[in-house]
């Protein structure tokens, strides 16, 4: 059975539609997830226990159940309580919640990695909690937080393949359709693998660009160039 590029070419419109759907779903979920992740992470440092506990419970529930089951719970349980649910909404909601929790864990870890003295100095200068977060902690943790967030967005793209099960017409759905009509497994697999690779590479590229813009990165860069000069 020779490998045939023409099969991929013929199936291209199907793949293209799936690729675009996956890209849109994951972009929306990543952005919404990041927005939600910040309060989920911060709540776990709160001085009042109801915030701490509810954030922790949410994190544990999402981390300790399969994504597929989360999708089913959202897709089937919400309509039963009277909230209408389409596969698009359920898919984006599931990806968003999943992403938010995993992002929040990275953010929490990054906050913990900022040395306590940095916060002490800000508090001692009379800076309020939000100001300390905005001016000191967030800029410093950017360098720590971007690499794991990048990995998690890549993970989100791969997890989104599951959404074909509730018939979201995304990339792995396209793969299954092409497989079902052409029976050309090697071609379909190579095509879908390359397309997922393209998506995840784009994320990796963007994240490493962003990383170069972080203040920590800039200060270390400047230091290394200075050290290099001193060596010469």
């Amino acid at each position: 059975m020779p490998f045939s590029l023409s099969i991929i070419a013929e199936a291209w419109p199907t793949f293209e539609a799936g690729l675009i759907t996956t890209a849109i779903f994951c972009s929306v979920a990543s952005v919404l997830g990041l927005v939600l992740a910040v309060p989920i992470a911060l709540a776990q440092f709160s001085r009042s226990w109801p915030w701490r506990v509810s954030a922790k419970v949410l994190v544990e529930i999402v981390r300790d159940t399969p994504f597929l089951v989360q999708v089913f719970v959202i897709y089937f349980v919400f309509p039963a309580t009277g909230i209408p649910m389409s596969s698009t909404v359920a898919g984006i909601l599931a990806l968003t919640i999943h992403g938010a929790v995993y992002f929040s864990e990275s953010i929490r870890g990054a906050i913990l990695s900022v040395p306590k003295g940095q916060v002490d100095a800000a508090r001692a200068a009379g800076m309020s909690y939000p100001l300390t977060m905005r001016r000191i902690v967030f800029p410093q943790m950017m360098g720590y937080v971007l690499p794991p967030i990048g990995n998690q967005i890549v993970g989100l793209i791969k997890d989104s393949a599951v959404l074909s099960i509730i018939s979201v017409p995304e990339l792995s759905m396209a793969f299954q359709n092409v497989l079902g009509t052409t029976f050309a497994a090697p071609e379909a697999f190579v095509a879908v693998a390359v397309l997922y690779w393209l998506l995840t590479s784009a994320v990796t590229l963007v994240m490493s660009r962003l990383e170069q813009l972080t203040p920590t990165h800039r200060s270390t860069q400047e230091m290394t160039s200075l050290l290099a000069k001193a060596d010469r």
Binding site: G117, D120, A121, G126, M127, I136, P139, Q140
Partner: peptide
């Protein structure tokens, strides 16, 4: 209240053993 605490803190200067300069600035 937090803002009162911060107002008091701002009236005292603190110098730490480990300097604690903000590394990104």
């Amino acid at each position: 209240t937090e803002s009162n605490i911060n107002r008091m803190r701002a009236r005292m200067g603190v110098v730490f053993q480990s300097f604690n300069l903000w590394t990104h600035m």
